[in-house]
Design a protein around this nucleic acid. Sequence first.
DNA 1: TATGAATGAGAATTCATTCAT
DNA 2: TATGAATGAATTCTCATTCAT
Lengths: 223, 223, 223, 223
Amino acid sequence: MVNKQISSLRVARPVAAPRQRDADRSQRDILDAARDEFALHGLAGARMDRIAERAAVNKRLIYYYFESKERLFLAVLERVYEDIRSEEQQLNLTQIEPTEAIRRLIAFTWNYSIRHPEFQTLLNSENLHRARHLKQSAKVTALHSPLVQTLADVLERGRQSGVFRAGVDPVQLYISIAGLSYFYLGNVHTLSTIFDRPLLGPKAKVERLSHMTDLVLGYLVRD
Amino acid sequence: MVNKQISSLRVARPVAAPRQRDADRSQRDILDAARDEFALHGLAGARMDRIAERAAVNKRLIYYYFESKERLFLAVLERVYEDIRSEEQQLNLTQIEPTEAIRRLIAFTWNYSIRHPEFQTLLNSENLHRARHLKQSAKVTALHSPLVQTLADVLERGRQSGVFRAGVDPVQLYISIAGLSYFYLGNVHTLSTIFDRPLLGPKAKVERLSHMTDLVLGYLVRD
Amino acid sequence: MVNKQISSLRVARPVAAPRQRDADRSQRDILDAARDEFALHGLAGARMDRIAERAAVNKRLIYYYFESKERLFLAVLERVYEDIRSEEQQLNLTQIEPTEAIRRLIAFTWNYSIRHPEFQTLLNSENLHRARHLKQSAKVTALHSPLVQTLADVLERGRQSGVFRAGVDPVQLYISIAGLSYFYLGNVHTLSTIFDRPLLGPKAKVERLSHMTDLVLGYLVRD
Amino acid sequence: MVNKQISSLRVARPVAAPRQRDADRSQRDILDAARDEFALHGLAGARMDRIAERAAVNKRLIYYYFESKERLFLAVLERVYEDIRSEEQQLNLTQIEPTEAIRRLIAFTWNYSIRHPEFQTLLNSENLHRARHLKQSAKVTALHSPLVQTLADVLERGRQSGVFRAGVDPVQLYISIAGLSYFYLGNVHTLSTIFDRPLLGPKAKVERLSHMTDLVLGYLVRD
DNA sequence: TATGAATGAGAATTCATTCAT
DNA sequence: TATGAATGAATTCTCATTCAT
């Protein structure tokens, strides 16, 4: 981009060595770059130019692999859902004592949203578009039934052992757990501003996790 | 350039009646239109042209009053914060029995976010920009200290009468209450899709409000 | 311009006290402001808004008095020509010994162009437009014949007393004297840059005046 | 929006043949067109649209190569300085007898400014901006030290052979020579108007060159 | 004589996408 | 598989000027 002009009029342009031909690597690089760019600027604010630059790939190549900005966005969405669900599965919640399982799920959700701030940002963009892209995805529903199944199992085991209250809808609870973490972190800039309080400091983070755990277990666990 | 001199021969064009000269009304119309447009498309996706059209205002007038897209966005943010806080104040929570006060706050938050889906959408956009605009606002912090004060009062009264647990941070609780509503509604399209379940149906809405109330009071109220 | 928005929605706008009605003063203020703005930015780069602001006058008033940007520009041109010629006349060159007269004319031209950098800038703009505006001016030619007359008189007196060489065209000489000053000062930024030398420093100024005087008298004065 | 689907029914539109893919040629065409446009209208008055049209290039391509109007302007400036200095070098002044060398330099400067009226116009624009663009140029100073060197050499040779006076600053002299030509031609429209005399006629041109040569040599050459 | 509100016609610049190799 | 060159359709913003009082 810089000083492209004129120089080419006299000096032999140092032609960029063409990228090694590695289809998989190129696609991965593009997806990574696109995820970051979409997360940072939203769908409308994202720039194909910047994605190409971040991925160190010729812009044309993005179209070669992903056809359009919108399809690229969908590919990113599918990818991030796979990532989170795959990590979630490794929690092995079905093999853990119910109270501890809930505790871990909350902690995991919290930490994941800290490690991956892009996740909620991307979903915000997608919701702005009323899930237009996701609805075209075949894989995504299949990805989520195990999650609901697992949580239902934990709740049922808790209820049977008399620890948890009855009648808790696993989907409602999952959304609540996610909301408690994601809303806080996704809105941390505006919340910090309006409440004039640093909500991302180390102490604030500890307090938040503790508050969320208390809230959910205070509700779930029978007296 | 072309046939200018002939134009006068044409049928008198129905010139759009010039807008009434009412500065306040114009500004209000612009703000309303901008709020809707930004909510629908985000900051980057919003189009000044569409805002002008929605407001039935000459595009130039927007710049006359608001200078730029970004300043207009800030003006919208300030406006929606004022709106919600103003409605919230009318709940008169300080004059109500604590458990009922919490119940009403949850219900209000839930209903407000249903009536004003644009609120969360606008905040998502602002968070994407790390509250860059809001941080330039003088008014916004002042707007929020009464809210925290009110909630602190409710919690304290509840604690003194032995109904609520002690040690609850009002800011944490407020964020949780907001999160439970706003996360659900703000992500309702993706959540409906991934869980393959209509989360906006009348029954679903009732269930959600009930779940949230149970969750918060189940935590707050001592056994 | 600043914070116009919103404020008017609630606070009663402090209506600017209307300017005292003084037609002459308003016109003078506008002309001064326009001269500076045109000098600073050229005709195309000048902004009617800024002129109004500089003149502390409502923009509409400029049109009331001067009709259009172009006519305002012409008014400015006529004004600056009047100013310089009027000062020049006060040199009383016809009553001074020829060599000294030339010396004074050079010094005057030099100092005037230092005191009034806007003069050359305005003329550059006008020349860009091939003197389109000046050609519409009635006054301007009349303004200049005395000048030529005066210089012719000086040259003739010098020749008769055997001091000056014969055959010097007063118009050519005047243009040369003007050019030596105005070209230097009008191009001082680029010249300083390309020659990497501070041509506006106090020492440089003294040297320039001395060089110009040597040059012109070295030519004029017979050996 | 309108009748898109019908368009294919229309007569095949004679699509402008896409421009040959020749990066260097495109850039050169843009530079040429930009030079003319900037010279004709100044920086503020120049229109990117017209430059694109003149260059027979898609407007977008200008930004592809030059990034912005201002950078394009700088590129033009560098280009014209290179052009004039390169022609000047071919005068081989160091190999010519001093008096003749000065004569040729004056004649060259005069003729160049007649052949290239855009040169001074462009510099006027740049001076209006206080050489803001040029100051960012790396090349431009380097381009000018040979010129000063050459002129110093001529003056020194003239002095040593007893023909020229001593103590002449080559930079001052160069600026004077340039000023005598460029001021005359750069202001020829206003000067012709105010003096009511055709300064661009063939006779006037001859007289001017002769006057300038007399002036400079009358000063330089010892009696 | 003076002013705030309003506007149409551009202006520079941006952007996703396609072409040609 | 990979790339530099090229483009059409917007998009934000600007500007001289006019309207209505």
